[in-house]
C-alpha cells in the first residue's frame, strides 16, 4: 500500500505572530518556520503504517517556496521514502492545493492520503475534504485512530460531544487530529540518511493547475487587544465584582 502525505511549511507554532504595519499580511521575515504540527502527526501515522508492514511506501509532498524542501527533509528523516516539491512563491489557496494534489495522485496512484486536518497559518481546515471531493473518494476527517486492513480503513473521528467511527474503503483521504499519535523526533542517523533520499522538484505548470487565487486579501489587521484587568485578593472579592461590576452572575 502506497501512502501520500502532504506537508506544509508554516510559521513555527511557538512564534508570536506579528501583523505587518502596511496590513499586507503577517511578517514572516527571519521567523522560525517548521512543518505544520498536524502534518507531523500525519507523517508519523504513515511511517508507523510502514513499520507495521501495512504500507510499502510513504511519499511526502509539499507545495511552497524552495525552503519547503526542508519540510520534506523533516518528513524523510521521520521515515518517509521520497519527496515531491511543487515549487511556487505564490500563497496557493486550498482549492488550488487540492487540485495540485489530485494531479500528483493521478501520477502516483496512492491507496491512501493521510494529511493534517488544518494548517496553523490559514486555519482553513479544507484541503483534505476538497481533495476527497475532487477525487470522489470517501473522507474521514479529524481522525484520532486509524486501523487499515483488507483494503479498508476503520477511522475513529472526534466530533462534538464524543467520537464517531467510520469505515472507508480505500483509496480514501484521512485527516489527522491532535490525538492520533505523538510524532517522533528524527534521530541524527535518520537525518543523515534523509539527505540521500530523493526529492523531485516540480512546478504548478507541470500539472496544468492555475494557482492564481480567486480570493483577494484586501488587508490583514491585528485583532482587538484585550487588556489585562485587575488582580483581586480573594474569592469573596471576585464574586462581589462579578455580581456588581461585571454583572455576569
Amino acid at each position: 500500500m502506497k501512502v501520500l502525505v502532504p506537508v506544509k511549511r508554516v510559521i513555527d507554532y511557538n512564534v508570536k505572530v506579528r501583523v505587518k504595519p502596511d496590513q499586507t499580511g503577517v511578517d514572516l521575515a527571519n521567523v522560525k518556520m517548521s512543518m505544520n504540527p498536524f502534518d507531523e502527526i500525519a507523517t508519523e501515522e504513515a511511517v508507523r503504517m510502514k513499520e507495521k508492514g501495512v504500507a510499502t511506501e510513504v511519499i511526502a509532498v509539499s507545495i511552497g517556496p524552495v525552503q519547503a524542501q526542508e519540510t520534506i527533509r523533516t518528513a524523510l528523516a521521520m521515515g518517509a521514502d521520497r519527496g515531491i516539491l511543487i515549487q511556487t512563491d505564490v500563497d496557493v489557496d486550498p482549492l488550488a492545493v487540492a487540485k495540485l494534489l489530485k494531479a500528483v495522485i493521478a501520477e502516483e496512484n496512492p491507496d491512501l492520503v493521510v494529511m493534517g486536518k488544518q494548517a496553523i497559518d490559514g486555519d482553513n481546515n479544507a484541503v483534505g475534504q476538497m481533495l476527497a471531493a475532487l477525487l470522489d473518494w470517501p473522507q474521514a476527517t479529524f481522525a484520532s485512530k486509524i486501523e487499515v486492513a483488507d483494503g479498508k480503513a476503520s477511522v475513529t473521528r472526534e466530533i462534538d460531544g464524543g467520537l464517531q467511527t467510520l469505515e472507508v474503503s480505500l483509496p480514501a483521504v484521512i485527516t489527522a487530529d491532535l490525538r492520533l499519535n505523538e510524532p517522533r523526533y528524527a534521530s541524527l542517523p535518520n537525518i543523515m540518511k534523509a539527505k540521500k533520499k530523493e526529492i523531485a522538484i516540480k512546478t504548478a505548470a507541470d500539472y496544468g493547475v492555475d494557482v492564481a487565487s480567486k480570493l483577494k486579501v484586501l488587508k490583514v489587521t491585528e485583532p482587538p487587544k484585550r487588556s489585562a484587568g485587575v488582580k483581586v485578593e480573594n474569592a469573596a472579592e471576585l464574586v462581589a465584582k462579578l455580581k456588581t461590576e461585571a454583572g455576569v452572575l
Partner: peptide, 12 residues
Amino acid sequence: IYAGNALETVQS
C-alpha cells in the same frame, strides 16, 4: 487566521 492572532479581510 494564525489562531486569531491576525484578521484577514477577503473579497471573493
